[in-house]
Structure formats: structure tokens, C-alpha cells
């Protein structure tokens, strides 16, 4: 039994996510961690932007804020500085957090406000119909790249590390235990913590690139203990003339951790209690 299920707004369930959507698995891990850590969500705020990922917060019975496209981190920053005692978790997607909201992401990392940002990365804009995202790998097909993506993808973790985030990690929906552990570590961290979670879009990205649905899609990424190999040329169907792009190995787990004062500490905000370590 997922103890986090008791934290859901039962009258809003079932959620709007598509069958087999990886976001649901990440949401499940998130509420599991919340249930483990907090007896009550009265002092927990979940802030989201726009997109499939961002709809997740509405189903969780906390202080939930579904904001505008890309701007969740700015709302969260204001909320956290106005109420430093709250635990603020930002749920965003790759389009939301790295496309339209990329500026807020790097600046939130730079400021080192004590909040946690979980980026649901499914390589596409799902809510609008499967368009090219800043995380779509080169050559992949989307509804706006009918001839394959000509551009390169962002590595969100490298981006926020360079911007000054003090905790950066990568997880994936396929490995819920690792994901749970990293969410916990991110919440434990004092300062801006960032988690890039690889999930799947079954309806658009998968279809366009023939990655299968449900568990096939979930298993479509070969994995090792420390890395995800996204080398999808192993898939026979995809070894057709133009084939699917070979994706680079992406490191998993905690990728960067450092220690510097949070903005709350520097501003000496009353009510802010820095976490240990």
C-alpha cells in the first residue's frame, strides 16, 4: 500500500494522465515520500507550472499552486521568502522548466533558495500534442519535427549545476526506489535541490518514435546501476534506414552536491530554520 495514497484528493481522482504515463509513477513516488516525511501537509506547498507534469500537484492534498507556464519557480521563490518556514516543492516539466521557464530555473539555482525542484522530463510537450521540447534528442520525431529534430537537447542537470544549484540528481520513473531515495535526499538538502526525472510520454513521443506503450515503453531504456543507456538502436523496429537516434549515456543518482548559504540565511529571514548539513 502506498501510504501517500491517503494524501490524494480522492474526489479529484482518477487523474488526467494517459494510460501508462510515467508521470503517474513519479507522482506515486513523490506522495510516498511525502507520507513518510510529513505527518501533515499543512506546512508543505507544491507549486507547479503548466503541462502534464504540473497537473500532478492538484491531486495532492497540500497547499497546491498551479501557476502559469514556466513560472512556477518564481511563484515558489516569492512564497518561500514570504513564508520561510514552509517546505516548498516545485513540480515542473521539461517544456515548462527548461523551455519557457528556463530563465527562472537558472536564477532559482543561482539564488539557492531552499526549495526542491522536480522536473518531469518526458522529452516532449505532452499537453499540447507532442511537440518538440528542449529535451527532445536529436533526430527524434515529434509533431513539429516531422523530418526529425535538427536541434540538440538540454542536459538539465548540467545546466542547473553550472547555474549554481547545490544539489543535482537524476532519476527515472522506471526505478521507483531510486527515485524515492533521491526525492528524500533532495528534500533533506539545505538549499536549491534539483531532480531531473526521466519519464515517458506514451501517447505522443512514444508513438511518433515507435517506442511501444505501457511496460514496453517503460522498459525501452536499457539501464545499468549508475547510468541509463538510451541507446535505442537496440530496438529492431528502429533500425530502419533513418533509424532512431543513439542517445548518450546519462549518469544517474546524485550528480552534484555542494554547500553554501541559502538566500534565506543570507537575508536573515525570521522563521527560516536551515536543515542540518
Amino acid at each position: 500500500m502506498n501510504p501517500g495514497k491517503a494524501l490524494l484528493r480522492q474526489d479529484m481522482m482518477p487523474h488526467i494522465l494517459c494510460p501508462g504515463c510515467g508521470h503517474g509513477i513519479v507522482m506515486s513516488a513523490l506522495v510516498r515520500v511525502l507520507a513518510k516525511r510529513y505527518a501533515s501537509l499543512d506546512q508543505v506547498a507544491l507549486v507547479a507550472g503548466i503541462g502534464c507534469s504540473s497537473r500532478v500537484v492538484g491531486y495532492i492534498d497540500a497547499n497546491t499552486l498551479h501557476t502559469t507556464h514556466g513560472r512556477a519557480l518564481s511563484f515558489a521563490t516569492g512564497l518561500k521568502l514570504a513564508r520561510p518556514e514552509l517546505t516548498v516543492i516545485v513540480v515542473t516539466g521539461d517544456g515548462d522548466g527548461l523551455g519557457i521557464g528556463g530563465n527562472h530555473l537558472i536564477h532559482a539555482a543561482r539564488r539557492n533558495v531552499d526549495l526542491t525542484c522536480i522536473l518531469f522530463n518526458n522529452e516532449t510537450y505532452g499537453m499540447t500534442g507532442g511537440q518538440l521540447a528542449p529535451t527532445t534528442v536529436t533526430q527524434a520525431f515529434t509533431t513539429t519535427t516531422p523530418y526529425g529534430n535538427h536541434e540538440s537537447a538540454f542536459d538539465a542537470t548540467a545546466l542547473v549545476t553550472a547555474a549554481g544549484a547545490t544539489f543535482v540528481a537524476r532519476a527515472q520513473a522506471y526505478r521507483p526506489d531510486l527515485l524515492e531515495g533521491l526525492i528524500e535526499q533532495a528534500l533533506d538538502h539545505r538549499g536549491f535541490s534539483f531532480l531531473d526525472v526521466l519519464t515517458d510520454c506514451t501517447e505522443y513521443f512514444s508513438r511518433k518514435n515507435q517506442l511501444g506503450a505501457g511496460s514496453d515503453l517503460l522498459f525501452s531504456q536499457t539501464r545499468s546501476d549508475t547510468e541509463i543507456s538510451l541507446d535505442l538502436t537496440e530496438w529492431p523496429r528502429l533500425q530502419e534506414p533513418d533509424g532512431f537516434p543513439v542517445r548518450n549515456l546519462m549518469p544517474m543518482g546524485v550528480l552534484h552536491e555542494s554547500n553554501r548559504p541559502t538566500l534565506e540565511e543570507v537575508m536573515e529571514l525570521p522563521g527560516y530554520r536551515p536543515k542540518e548539513g
Binding site: 500500500m1 502506498n2 501510504p3 495514497k5 491517503a6 490524494l8 481522482m13 482518477p14 487523474h15 494522465l17 494510460p19 501508462g20 504515463c21 510515467g22 508521470h23 503517474g24 509513477i25 507522482m27 506515486s28 513516488a29 520513473a173 522506471y174 521507483p176 526506489d177 511496460s215 517503460l218
Partner: peptide, 21 residues
Amino acid sequence: CEKLCPDFAIDVLTESTIRVN
């Protein structure tokens, strides 16, 4: 199955979580 269900549809209840039921 519970952990990988995106829809919270399956509960696997063990002794420690029975009371939820």
C-alpha cells in the same frame, strides 16, 4: 505493480499497511 502503476489503482497491502484498508 503498485510502485509502477501510474494510476494508484493497485494496493499491495502487507501487515504494516493493513490499517489503511
